[in-house]
Amino acid sequence: MSMRRLLDVEHLTMQFGGLTAINDLNLVARNREITAIIGPNGAGKTTVFNCLTGFYKPTVGRLSLSVPGRKEVYLERMDDFQIARAGVARTFQNIRLFPAMSVLENLIVAQHNELMRASMWSVGGLLGSRKYRKQEELAIGVASKWLDQIGLNGVADKPAGDLPYGDQRRLEIARAMCSKPALLCLDEPAAGLNSQESGELNSLLCGIRDEHGIGILLIEHDMDVVMNVSDQVVVLDHGQKISAGSPTVVSEDPKVINAYLGEPGEDPLSLEMAGRR
């Protein structure tokens, strides 16, 4: 494991009043790798994401992000939108698109900060500066490339809220990618997808990892997705890391099987079956 660390989570602890949602979690994400976070319901997976992306302030812990070519930053000290600017993009468990805006607009809004600079905080844009028009063309180009990739080119001008569920999921990932992140955090991207759609999702995720060379953090219940795409898996239970390693290692770890299924011998189901519920 000589690859550089992209995200280094050390001693992350998050308490809500007396409840410890995450306890002393250590976690590493690398470039060109998909790191899956799995665990039973209520294990604290989404809380980890919320700490990473600044929606919660961690009680204890250091979250350092070192994007190649940029200075190392500490996420626990930053506001949510600053973290996004530093290169952490995320999707949400319950899809959060801009439903009344068109599909294309959703992808353009993701490139807000670049466009804002090019429009000189709207002054140049109001006067119709060439620099802004050029940047807007570029942004539309990026968006249309992503639309091609997720196969939504034909509905670019439709309201995003009118899309079918699976398309909305992919659009949310594309929107996160349009903000040109170094680390992409996906919160249950396969939730509610059928097996064909989750197959497409697999290839989309692998494509993003291989072509863009960014790190991906993935929360997922669908074990097909987890086993097929992830390079390493971290298992949480009751806010505690109980296992980590490659997918095969983790799936054979008795502690993991315990966490999902209770004491061994009680039930003959495999971990895969547990994932599918």
Binding site: A84, M101, I108, V109, W121, G125
Partner: peptide, 20 residues
């Protein structure tokens, strides 16, 4: 302009805006 689209995006979903 970006600012106008950001206003509309804020109307639609503030949390998504922050995440972008």
């Amino acid at each position: 302009l970006p600012i106008g689209r950001a206003w509309e995006a804020l109307r639609e979903d503030e949390i998504a805006c922050r995440s972008l």
